[in-house]
């Protein structure tokens, strides 16, 4: 007799915990063939607000961690993803309708992307920073630092896991904390990634994942005064110009939407987009 399976309840991931939406809402996640897969939490503006609070709270610890430590924490995510490869392949196959080989390739690339960005943790400052030869008795250094809390609209296209990782990893490697609105139609791998994160060494609150409608949640994040930057990579189908205009109220740093195979391609520029260059002058004299 076939054993009756235990379906998973898909919830939000905020501050290292898995709450349901405060609104009590859920929405149906369907397979590519239209079959019911799960009821995902339909996050609200208040969930987004809570996620920003969690991200702000985690910022000091994460930005203050050593670069070596952040690199290892990100690498640890890759290790854990590798261990749960089968689960992600199954979810991607059901959600996105790709075959095992295609899903496997996506998971592999997502894993490799964590590894690639993990390696940048203790290098981007060297590459993007400078010792500046000012004409005077001063020691002068420019150093990039994390911008702060970054709100991300995850890519909404085909490759839900890879898109999500491609947007999150460059932001967090620099020491930012993030609130990400997951792929609306294919949120399962986002929540499963949250389970990976929860068992990894990523401190709670560093990565917060909200499922639901980007169109509903994004305006609240774009206008939130305690959000420092906005990655609209997956907002191409939203009224993203309005979001950018809204973000201008507090001069948020904004990355525009991207689409196609090139979207959120791995690049040092994605890391540096959410960094601030700090220049420190110090007097220099032996007398």
């Amino acid at each position: 007799m076939k054993r009756l399976a235990i379906p998973k309840t898909y919830k939000l991931y905020i501050g290292g915990k898995f709450p349901r939406s405060e609104s009590g809402r859920v929405y149906e996640v369907l397979s590519h063939t239209g079959d019911f897969l799960a009821n995902a939490a339909k996050g609200s503006r208040k969930d987004a607000r809570d996620a920003v609070v969690a991200a702000r709270g985690a910022l000091g610890v994460w930005a203050g961690a050593t670069a070596y430590n952040r690199g290892q924490v990100l690498y640890r995510i890759a290790e854990l993803l590798e261990g749960r490869r089968a689960q992600f392949i199954a979810e991607i196959m059901s959600c996105e309708g790709v075959n095992a080989a295609g899903a496997g390739a996506q998971v592999d690339e997502a894993i490799d992307r964590w590894v690639w960005y993990a390696g940048w943790a203790d290098k981007y400052v060297q590459v993007a920073g400078n010792a500046n030869p000012v004409s005077g008795p001063f020691f002068n250094l420019s150093v990039p630092e994390p911008t702060g809390v970054v709100a991300i609209i995850a890519p909404q296209g085909d490759e839900s896991l890879l898109g999500l990782v491609s947007a999150i990893a460059p932001a967090v490697v620099a020491g930012n904390t993030v609130v990400v609105v997951a792929n609306e139609n294919a949120p399962l791998s986002a929540i499963s990634l949250a389970e990976v994160l929860a068992t990894s060494d990523v401190p709670g609150g560093v990565i917060n994942i909200v499922t639901g409608s980007p169109a509903e949640i994004a305006p609240w994040l774009a206008s939130h005064a305690d959000v420092n930057a906005l990655d609209l990579v997956g907002a191409g189908d939203l009224d993203w110009v309005e979001l950018q205009i809204s973000a201008a109220d507090t001069l948020k740093r904004v990355l525009p939407p991207e689409s196609g195979a090139d979207a959120a391609a791995p690049a040092l520029s994605r890391i540096l987009a959410f960094t601030e260059l700090k220049t420190i002058w110090h007097t220099k004299a032996i007398l």
Partner: peptide, 18 residues
């Protein structure tokens, strides 16, 4: 990955943007 060497410090519009 190897082609990803660019960097900018301000937001840029991507050629692939809508």
């Amino acid at each position: 990955i190897s082609a990803a060497a660019d960097h900018t410090t301000t937001p840029v519009s991507k050629k692939s943007a809508p």
